[in-house]
Design a protein around this nucleic acid. Structure first.
Lengths: 188, 188
DNA sequence: GCTTCTTTTTATCATTTGGTAAAAAATCTT
DNA sequence: AAGATTTTTTACCAAATGATAAAAAGAAGC
């Protein structure tokens, strides 16, 4: 929980009372590997913050291929935020890649914070926007070849490589698992 | 200007006075083809809204290749918003692909609106977040082959194909201009 | 209309990546 | 420990894309 408080204090100041209020609204939840935090076709009802573990955002294309769009690891906000706000169904899944612990806020709690803490909305929006921005910046670059994308992935996510299956990483990088295996061999 | 008012009214209600205030802060500006709205290394000082024309977000990689990250056409918000808000230098360019007309708000004007119009911040953040979200969704999908990416690009941007140079589109799709030319030939 | 400059296409060959199949290695169950 | 399952690696060949060079087409200036 302290990690989450540290995280939000990056975006503005809060007094002890306010911190206590936020803490009281948060709930710690465990997720087993492969469990879904959010599912395609359902309206996202929660905002999460990853305490321990790794999640991924993914979807299926018209050929049934599974495509990983992003990874979310420790000390990151996790939500299909646009659909969460708009009360609309998501088109993606958010799935635990490992056994995980997260903090969640229900939609009601999340909205109550806006009404009771002056300045929370500003902090919240900075948080959400920075999140979206960073995600867009860490994505693999389509004009680079697969080897370069893999090397940059390891730069951006040095701790992930040994924690999640390589087929997730391959689908994130836009290549087959076999190609990724070949690339790993050629590098080392 | 009406287009911009229609655009913002999607995100909330405003009375006539409020609309008039917003209008008074906006300035219409022309951009010639190739001119920069925003530049790498500089702090973005304006938020724009495209009335007529097409812009692109682009940057240079370590080989000096020019890479197009997005296109921004009529009736869209245009800004390196995170750096605009944070007063930090951008790492990208926003460049006019055609002669264009846009509306701009200076940073001062943009912030005055927050202080004078109740609810503007909420509308503004919805706008910005939806913008970021849509941009991330319309990006070429890295796991698709170049032909599919090109076909989806034409679906997503049917009006762009005849208005902007093909090398911009190629760099957006992550392929060489020669490859794009070959793909176009094979399709038709 | 002619020249110059820019954009787009074509062509050839090397390299990268995908598709398919199978083997090997690692992990999990019992 | 043995068997079953999952994950990762290998191998082979076909297809897609890149690199380089050059030609063709189109646009701009005089």
């Amino acid at each position: 929980m302290e990690n989450f408080i540290d995280y939000i204090l990056q975006f503005g100041h809060l007094n002890k009372q306010q911190v206590a209020l936020i803490t009281s609204k948060a709930k710690e939840v465990s997720f087993q590997k492969d469990a879904y935090f959010s599912e395609a076709g359902k309206i996202p009802k929660q905002v999460g913050f990853v305490i321990e573990g790794v999640f991924r955002g993914c979807y299926y294309n018209n050929l049934g291929d599974e495509i990983t769009r992003c990874f979310i690891s420790e000390n990151s906000l996790m939500s299909d935020y646009i659909n969460f706000e708009a009360n609309t169904a998501s088109s993606e899944y958010i799935q635990a890649c490992t056994d995980s612990k997260i903090i969640v806020f229900s939609k009601e709690s999340w909205e109550e914070l806006s009404q009771t803490i002056v300045g929370w909305d500003t902090m919240k929006n900075k948080m959400v926007q920075l999140c979206m921005y960073q995600k867009s910046r860490s994505n693999p670059v389509i004009s680079q070849d697969a080897t370069t994308r893999y090397l940059e992935f390891m730069d951006n996510h040095p701790t992930l490589i040994n924690r999640i299956p390589l087929n997730y990483i391959a689908s994130y990088l836009g290549i087959t698992q076999q190609s990724l295996s070949r690339i790993r061999k050629n590098i080392s």
